[in-house]
Structures are given as structure tokens and as C-alpha cells.
Design a protein around this nucleic acid. Structure first.
Length: 314
DNA sequence: AATCAGCTCAACCGCGAAAGG
DNA sequence: ACCTTTCGCGGTTGAGCTGAT
């Protein structure tokens, strides 16, 4: 059986839109609006198209004030940070970027930004690994502390693969960003009391309906994007305080300095790499997450991530 | 010049949520 | 309360483009 199609696909035109079709749709919406019914719109507009196709064309291409390409570094950072925090909720992310559509942001992430993130994460891991090697060769490290190398971690993740649906690639996509870019929900824990500690044994909070979920997740991202872009974001924090220095260069983040500002320093710089690995590991080993975050909190004052860090694993 | 591989992005697909009867 | 219709979203596809060989 299956779901009935939204329209008769054999009788409607598909594929790329012609300039004439664009003009028909544009002028119809301009004169009449969408009428709240996309299914009926193509017939009224004289278009031999599926309603969904019309909606998509309008929202992603014909709508006024749409921007294509030319993403700024600022936008990159917003996308990265939001992706880290709420995952692939492209419509929400796009809503924070004036003129951008969810499809556009999604494409941009999948084709460009993701690669950038992954390469940066690998670089970060390597640096951490080298640091650990130097540390252990120059003296004994922390008693009982095992140095986790990517090489060593891989087989374990494969062991877990049977109980974890997503591929390592998809997991690393999300987790690499979790590790790289502290989300506002991580860096702004003091300003986000809604964060519940993940203790692994407590019953998971009942997720609110999707709309409310989005709203609560977004509560951390007010005020509006225009304000954010002008230089400040939630709680009046300077935008740059909400992102790790990878995209900015070290000069803006003095080494060892408390660049998150007083009261917003869950990730101390000297332990950042460790926290990153911990976060990454937690993605691969969800059952060990409670212990890790408990330890992390004790050592690093790190809160467990809210939904979104390892969204690809859920 | 021809072929191939990789990339981009518009468009499609199918699902869940919301709305309305 | 249930069913149907429509909307909105995220994942995926594939045509067209570009650069390398």
C-alpha cells in the first residue's frame, strides 16, 4: 500500500523550472498570495506542476530577498554553532540567517562546511595526540589515565557499531562539530538553567512537541539574528566569545586566557582538547556517557550536551 | 579533444505534525 | 476520537558544470 502521492506524478511536469513557469508562479503569488493551499495553487495559477513543487520553488528560489552563495565567515560560525547545538534542523538554522533558505544552508553544509569542520577536527585531534605523546615521553602522565588515540578508538567504535545504527562517518560529522564548536548550550550553561544534567540513570525528560522543542532550543539563541550579526548574541555575550578560535585565528583568543568570560568558562582552554575527545567518545559510546560526563563535570566543569550533540545517533 | 571524477545545487521523496471535518 | 488532507521538514538524488588527466 503505502502513502498516496500528493498528486498524479504522471500528469504533472517535473524537473527544472522554465523562466515562464517561474514568472507564472511569481505573478500569481504576488497577486493572490499562496492562498494557504499549495495543492490547489498550481491549477489556479495555470501551472502544470505539483503543489509541493510550487511551494519548494517559491520558498527556495522565487521568494523575494533570497540570497544565494557568498556565505560570510559570520554565517559560517552561526551555522556551525547551531548545528552543534540543535543538529540538522535546517529550517531553524536558516531562520537565523536572513535571506537564507533551509535547502541552501543544508546544501552549503553538506558540500563545504562539513568538510571544513571535519578537517579541522582531525587537525585538532592530531595536535592533541602529539601533545599527549610529548607529555607521556617527558614524564608520566596522570596516573591511570590512558591516552586515547584515534587508532585505538576505532576498533571500539566498530565494536559498538552493531548496537548503533549510524555509520561512523555520520557520527563523526555531528560529533566532530560537537567537539570543535562549543554550542551556546554548552558555553552558556550558566544562562541556560533548562539544561538537565545527563546522568544516564534518570528518566529522560519527556520531549515536548516538536514546535515547543524548537522553541525551547531556540530560547538560547535570542535575540534575533540581526542583533547577533551585529556583534552580540544571547546574554549580551560578544559573538566571538561563543566560538572556538579555529575559525578566527589564535590572536583573538589569548592562550590560556579565559576567553569565555567570567561565569561562562565551562571549557577551560587547557582542558579543551581533552573535553573534545571526551565529547567525541561519548558519541560513540553512549552507554559510557554518564560516567564520562560525570568525570568531565568533576574535572572540567563540563555539562552534558543537550539533544543535538549526537543527534545522528538518535 | 575526449573522458572521467568530483562537486554543486535544484528538485524530488517520504515521513511526521498540524489542521480541519 | 478518528480520519483525511495539507504542510513543512530533512534526507537523498541526479543533471549539469568544472577541472584534472
Amino acid at each position: 500500500m503505502g502513502r498516496a502521492p500528493c498528486c498524479d506524478k504522471t500528469s504533472v511536469k517535473r524537473g527544472p523550472w522554465s523562466p515562464e513557469e517561474d514568472e507564472l508562479l511569481r505573478s500569481y503569488v504576488h497577486n493572490h498570495g499562496t492562498g494557504g493551499n499549495w495543492i490547489a495553487l498550481p491549477h489556479k495559477a495555470g501551472l502544470n506542476r505539483c503543489g509541493k513543487s510550487c511551494r519548494l520553488r517559491w520558498l527556495n528560489y522565487l521568494r523575494p530577498d533570497i540570497k544565494h552563495g557568498g556565505y560570510t565567515e559570520q554565517e559560517d560560525r552561526i551555522i556551525c554553532s547551531l548545528y552543534n547545538s540543535i543538529g540538522s534542523r535546517w529550517s531553524i538554522i536558516a531562520s537565523k540567517l536572513p535571506g537564507r533558505t533551509d535547502n541552501d544552508v543544508k546544501n552549503y553544509w553538506n558540500t563545504k562546511l562539513k568538510k571544513k569542520a571535519i578537517s579541522m577536527h582531525h587537525q585538532q585531534q592530531q595536535e592533541y595526540y602529539h601533545q599527549q605523546q610529548q607529555h607521556s615521553s617527558g614524564g608520566r602522565g596522570r596516573r591511570g589515565a590512558a591516552v586515547v588515540t584515534p587508532r585505538a578508538a576505532a576498533p571500539r567504535s566498530q565494536q559498538c557499531a552493531s548496537s548503533m545504527q549510524p555509520s561512523p562517518a555520520s557520527a563523526s560529522d555531528a560529533c566532530s562539530f560537537g567537539a570543535m564548536y562549543p554550542s551556546p548550550s554548552t558555553t552558556l550553561q550558566a544562562a541556560a538553567p533548562v539544561l538537565a544534567r545527563y546522568d544516564g540513570t534518570a528518566p529522560a525528560p519527556v520531549p515536548p512537541p516538536r514546535g515547543q522543542q524548537q522553541a525551547s532550543a531556540l530560547a538560547e539563541f535570542s535575540p534575533a539574528p540581526a542583533t547577533a550579526i551585529s556583534g552580540t548574541w544571547a546574554g549580551g555575550l560578544p559573538l566571538d566569545d561563543m566560538f572556538l578560535p579555529e575559525l578566527l585565528g589564535d590572536s583573538e583568543f589569548p592562550p590560556g586566557g579565559d576567553f569565555f568570560g567570567t561565569g561562562f568558562a565551562p571549557l577551560l582552554l587547557q582542558d579543551r582538547a581533552a573535553a573534545s575527545l571526551q565529547e567525541l567518545s561519548a558519541c560513540y559510546f553512549p552507554n559510557a556517557q554518564a560516567e564520562m560526563w560525570a568525570a568531565a563535570d568533576h574535572h572540567l566543569h563540563v555539562k552534558a550536551p543537550q539533544a543535538g550533540l549526537c543527534h545522528s545517533l538518535t
